[in-house]
Every structure is written in structure tokens, then in C-alpha cells.
Design a protein around this nucleic acid. Structure first.
Lengths: 348, 348
DNA sequence: ATGAAAGCGCTAACAG
DNA sequence: CTGTTAGCGCTTTCAT
């Protein structure tokens, strides 16, 4: 519903007494058009406020040059880093990006997927919501041969290409670190074990306990939804444990921060009474007191890698279905929240 | 580049030996088509995996049903709340949303605007980057009669509809609060004074000083880019001041948190030595120690209001150019970081 | 209640 | 180097 009628290539062609084909070519900077003509055309286009019609173009070309991204939430450092990485690569490659977030809801994730399907994205990059129970909403893409690539929160059924970190190892390293600090009763606060990231960290946690001859106690496991309230509740639950744990491995820095605050409010000293390790290396970890030991992994690299694979697949340079799992590096960052002994800084 | 050819309404029409016109009507649930035929058509569409072609549709209809949103950054609670508000309203109204972020760069904001212009969004909602020096990139929208609406970071030249809080008042209230706590030398850490939000808070700060007979000292003003490094640098600068300020009003909770950490590391006690007030009510404020006094304002409401105005304008229900400035409520939240006296909780 | 047909703006053969 | 032209899939007027 625009005020003035849109300028089309026909208008440009008429004004210059040339054909639309030439105009079209010139606008794409086709070198086959003489430099002079190209200049003339782009000048006139500028003057008349011409804007190309994406719809006509896409309709004609049968492709959108657009990649869809579905993330569980926006307000996390990790996610925005990934997004930045994806954006960098796709922009360089001349692709547009549409970003949607599921707010950790299966239903919204389905809606987003359907929307992208109908918008005909050339490819889809996604990280699953906490709630997601099945992957049926991605089937239409697979059926049409539209590449789908998951990162971080993925389903490792072997059918999908995924970009992840070694969550099991991270869980192991985090727990091992607590054990090395002298912890004997280590609680684990996590979220839906349906999600690979949490179930694998849990596995790493149990493996580390086992390897150190520490029996696993079911009651040391707390599952929540990563909200602020959940952090408070989990801390209360920790405090009801007898004996009190002397260490906690928490899968998310924000929840860890909320937990720590609640514990401290109740007179528990960190790390002396309870040592804490978080996950994600959010900005918050360096601002709270004591600073939070955590697992760091490079969101921006994950984004770049995911996007690069997608683009290469789309351009036919490589095939997404051949490389199935890409593991990105990760590392333990030791800060005061876990240092019962005040010693060195192991890295891996 | 899809594996199988797309199903079109022609395919549906052929299979059912009816015309594409009928199919088109049926797919839009036009009641002029008999119920039976409609059912038959939608069943077949389902069966064949038909998906409507947005491009053909938009090309034909000359409108996109899409609203573009440009924000300076993604990883802030405030922004994601606004986005949630916008999304709620636009989704209900059946509009699609495209979100872009400028990463606080003028250049990227221009690119985003151009991109949206070429994508032919029906309307644009934006918040300016820190860097933005002029609004030329929004001119094309205005010229074509495409509604543009700004929120939070805006240019109040009277030409644009804006949704904002009363930043001057907030700056005043924050400063007044510090004064009431007994502060005499109040520093102000802010960002580019080209942005309304910062220049107005600065004005409020100065007004409050003036009204209380406290002389303004130019050297108490620190302007930075709101990064972590900037927070550290600003704290260092604070500590070089002689005499040391006894209060700081900082326009951003994250920077306030970083500042506080740095000050504490150098043995400065908060609020006893220096009282601090932040801005935005980020989650971080409740997790650091002492908890941060701050200004709260409802991002979700701002988003909803902005979106509602946009939609109403697009539907012709109201006109965006008649209501020029919409002020959203805001309030001081008092926490320990500013309480030299440990007294009540003023609100406004 | 249904059909025929024009045309939205663009690209890419193909022809010169 | 440039022009002609046939669609891409859909909506919508005008007929019937």
C-alpha cells in the first residue's frame, strides 16, 4: 500500500530506450553490459528511487537466498555469540538471515519451523527448546531436501548434522575438578535430561564420580527449568540435604549465580562450605562473588562453523550429510567459586 | 534448489479437474466456494504437501505483511523484553516479523535499513545504535509513506513517532535519591550524549544537582561505550578523582556491575564509600553484591505499545503521525548499593 | 459456484 | 553487447 507507484525495470528501460534485459543485467553488474550503460542505468535507478523486487526475483529464481535460524532464547551471551558467528559467515556469502526464537517451547518451535518452511528458507540452523519432544516439525525440510543443521541442543540420532561440544567430557572435567578440590558429596543441578547437553553432562558427572570411587546418590540430582525461581528452589533443596553437599556442578551460569546468592543469604560460605562450578562462561560469572568457575565454549566459532557448513552445502562445495558431528573445543575456567585449595588453573 | 518440484495450485486444480481460481479461493477459505470443494481441495493440498508461495502472493498483492525491527543489540534483557512485546502483538495481528541488530554501529544500521527497504517491510520499528549520527537511512521509508516508529533510543525532532520513558525524570530521580542518601560529590558514567536516552538522563542528573544547590563539576562526567573494558576504565578514572566521589549514577546496569567489581577490588566499600545507582533493571543487578539500585522500565509494554501503534496505523485504524510521543512508566528500584542510611523504598 | 485470463516484476534462454 | 520473450505461482476481475 505505497503512496507512489513503485519504479520497475520497465520504467528504467523505457526512460532510457533500452530493453529490460539490459537493465536487469546492468543491475546485477553483469560485465557483459558496457560500462557506460551500466552507469547510466544505475544512476537513473538511484534517481528514481528504484528498488528491486525480491518477490519477483525469488519467484523467478525459485530460491530465496535466505537461511532460517531457530534458537531457544535470545537473551543469553552464548546464543548471541552464535548468532554473530552465523551472521558473519552468511553475510559474507550473500545470504539473508531470519532469526526466530522458541522461548523454550515446543509449540513455538513448531510454529517457527512451519513459518520458515512456508517462507522457503534455503537452509535451517536450529538449537532445540527445552520442551521439544520430537523432531517431526523438521521432517518437511528433510523431505524436500532442504538442509537442516543443529547446534548445541541437538538430537544425535545420526540423521542430522550437528555442531556441539563434548558435553560428556565437560561434565567429567567439571566434576573431576570439584573432586580434586576435595569435594566428596557433589550435587548436580541440571535441566531436562531429554536434551543431549544436559544428559551428557550428567553422564560425565557420573563417570567422574565412578572413576573416583564416589558412589552416586540419586538425591543429589536436581532437575529444573533454568529460571530464576528454579535457582532459588534448587538452593533451598540443597540446604535440606543431609549431609550438606560440599560441591555442586550446575549446568548454567545464571542458575549457578542465583543459587549462590541464595546459599550465601543463608550463611553458607562459597567455596569453603560448598564449591560451585557453572557452565557457559556468561558475563555474570565474573561479576558475582566469588567469581564463578565455569566451562567456556566459543559460541562465535560454533556459529561460524555451522553457517560455513550450511553455505558450503548449499553451494555444492561439500555435503552436509557426509560430516555428521562436529565437535568444538571447550575448556574449564577456574575461578574462586570452586577453589577450596587456592591452587593452579587446569585447562584442557 | 529443491529435490522434488513444488506443488502449485495448478497441480491441485489439475488433479481435481477444477480451475486454479477455485483452488486459490478455497485455500483462502473463501465462503463463495462450496464447503465440499473446499474440503476436497484442502485435503489434497495436505496430502501433496502443498505450500503456498509467499513470493507469488506478495508479488501479486504488492504487500508483504511483514514488519521490520532494528535493535542495537540482542543480548540485553530490555531488548528481548521489547521484542517479546512486539512479537506478541504482531503475531496476533497476523504480521510477520524480521529482526535485525546493528551491533551499535551506524554502518550496520544503515545496511539493515536498506535491506528492510528492499525487502519491502510494511512498517519499521527501530531503536538507534550508539554510533548513529543521522537518520538519512530512514528517509526512503518516509518518502514511500512506509511508517517508521522509534523506541527507547530515538531522535526527537518532532518528525517521528517515538515510544520512550521520561529519561530526564529518571535521571533526576536517580540523582535525587543519591543526594537524599547524603551524597555530595556524585559522578555520572554515561555513553554517547548524542543519544536522547543518555543526554536526557544527564540533564536530569544536572537538574537534580542544581535543585539541591550542588555545583556541577565537569570532571565528574565520564562518557564511554558501555563495554566491559569501559566499565573497568571508568572505575579507574573514578578512583583517580580527588576527592573521591561518594556516589555514582551509571546509565547501564552491566557497566555499573563491572565498575562496582573494580572498585571493590581496590578496597572501596559500596555503598559506604561510594553509593551506586544503575539503570535498566537487568537480571545482573540482583545477583551482584551489594544488589544494585536501578531504574526499571517495562520493555514488554514498550514493545506492545510500539507494535500496537504500528499495526493500527497499517490497518488505517489510527494514524501514527497524530500521536507523536508516547511515554511509558518507569520507577526507581532501591537496593543496597545506594543505601547509606538503610531506609525506605521510594517509588514513582 | 466456478472458470478464463491478465498481470504482478524479474531472469534467463535464445537470437541477433 | 543488446533485445525478445516465456514463464515463475498467485490473485482477482469479469464472465458464465
Amino acid at each position: 500500500m505505497n503512496k507512489r507507484k513503485e519504479v520497475t525495470i520497465y520504467d528504467l528501460a523505457n526512460k532510457l530506450h533500452i530493453s529490460v534485459a539490459t537493465v536487469s543485467r546492468a543491475l546485477q553488474n553483469d560485465r557483459v553490459v558496457s560500462k557506460k550503460t551500466r552507469k547510466k542505468i544505475s544512476d537513473l535507478a538511484e534517481e528514481l528511487g528504484y528498488r528491486s523486487n525480491h518477490f519477483a526475483r525469488n519467484l523467478r529464481q525459485q530460491q530465496t537466498n535466505t537461511i532460517g535460524v531457530i534458537v531457544p532464547k535470545l537473551n543469553s551471551n552464548f546464543i548471541t555469540s552464535v548468532l554473530a558467528g552465523i551472521e558473519k559467515v552468511t553475510t559474507e556469502a550473500g545470504y539473508d538471515l531470519i532469526i526466530a526464537h522458541s522461548s523454550e517451547s515446543h509449540e513455538k518451535e513448531v510454529a517457527n519451523a512451519n513459518n520458515f518452511f512456508h517462507k522457503r528458507v534455503d537452509g535451517l540452523i536450529a538449537s532445540l527448546s527445552l520442551d521439544t519432544t520430537d523432531l517431526d516439525h523438521f521432517k518437511p525440510f528433510v523431505n524436500k531436501g532442504i538442509p537442516v543443521l543443529f547446534f548445541d541442543r541437538v538430537e544425535q540420532d545420526g540423521n542430522n548434522t550437528v555442531v556441539i561440544i563434548d558435553n560428556t567430557k565437560c561434565g567429567y572435567v567439571a566434576t573431576q575438578h570439584l573432586i580434586e578440590q576435595g569435594c566428596k558429596r557433589i550435587a548436580h543441578i541440571t535441566s531436562s535430561l531429554k536434551r543431549n547437553v544436559y544428559s551428557q553432562r550428567y553422564k560425565g558427572y557420573r563417570d567422574a564420580l565412578f572413576d573416583n570411587g564416589i558412589p552416586f546418590d540419586e538425591s543429589n540430582l536436581i532437575v529444573n527449568d533454568l529460571s530464576e525461581q528454579a535457582g532459588v528452589d534448587s538452593a533451598m533443596e540443597i540446604m535440606r540435604m543431609k549431609p550438606l553437599p560440599d560441591g555442586i556442578f550446575i549446568v548454567n551460569d545464571f542458575v549457578a549465580a542465583v543459587c549462590m546468592r541464595t546459599l550465601k543469604e543463608h550463611g553458607i560460605s562459597i567455596p569453603d562450605d560448598i564449591a560451585i562450578v557453572g557452565f557457559n562462561n556468561d558475563a555474570i560469572g565474573k561479576l558475582i562473588e566469588p567469581p564463578l568457575t565455569t566451562i567456556n565454549y566459543p559460541g562465535i566459532d560454533m556459529g561460524e562453523i555451522a553457517a560455513r557448513n550450511m553455505i558450503n552445502h548449499l553451494k555444492g562445495i561439500s555435503n552436509i550429510h557426509t560430516t555428521n558431528t562436529i565437535i568444538v573445543r571447550s575448556e574449564l575456567i577456574v575461578r574462586k567459586s570452586s577453589l577450596k585449595k587456592g591452587n593452579g588453573h587446569p585447562q584442557f
